[in-house]
Structure formats: C-alpha cells, structure tokens
C-alpha cells in the first residue's frame, strides 16, 4: 500500500495535480507523507513508462495527468490488490 508509484497514480486518477498537491492528497487518502525525493522518483519512473504526462502550465509547479495507459495499469494493480484483500479477509473470517 505504500508503493509511491501506486499512490501517485491513485492521486492523479482524481484529477491533474502538481507535486505538492499530490503530497497533500496522498497523505489525506492513504495516511502516507511522501518526501520530495520519493515523490519525484516515482514521477520520473511513471513518466518514463508513459503512465503520466506533464500538463502545460505558466507556473513553475508543473501539474501531471494520468494517461489512458496509466489508468489501465492502475486498474490492474488495484484488481490484483483487491484479490489479495478479498482472500485475506475471507481467510480471517474462517480462521
């Protein structure tokens, strides 16, 4: 749950955001405060994979947007995680 790339994708799934806005958003929905180095490491990897892309801006704070490929990847990751969560919960119930 603390994978920075997953958190960034999940944050951008809710709309375009710049770095600081992502940090705030992620802290709010996941309770994890990403450091600037960790955040930009994740942004670099995601942009290389073409799962996010920068949005033109007048400001120095550049916003990012999730791409259609990024959405597919996020959906796959969440589905895998959902299966793990479902199995874990079911087994806890029967234990």
């Amino acid at each position: 749950m603390s994978d920075p790339t997953l958190l960034v994708l999940a944050s951008l799934a809710g709309g375009d955001k710049h770095g600081y806005a992502m940090m705030e958003d992620i802290e709010q929905f996941a309770g994890v405060r990403l450091g600037p180095g960790t955040l930009y490491g994740a942004i670099t990897r995601l942009e290389e994979q073409k799962w996010i892309r920068p949005v033109a801006s007048e400001d120095r704070r550049r916003p990012y947007r999730i791409t259609p490929e990024g959405r597919v990847h996020l959906a796959e990751m969440l589905a895998r995680m959902g299966a793990v969560v479902k199995t874990g919960l079911r087994r806890l119930k029967h234990a």
Partner: peptide, 13 residues
C-alpha cells in the same frame, strides 16, 4: 528536465 519544478516543490515543503 525536473529541477525547476522540484525546486518549486521544495519551497513549499
């Protein structure tokens, strides 16, 4: 590629 926006983020953190 990233220094300007990274610097802008560091000013807010």
């Amino acid at each position: 590629r990233y220094e300007a926006e990274f610097a802008a983020l560091l000013e807010e953190v």
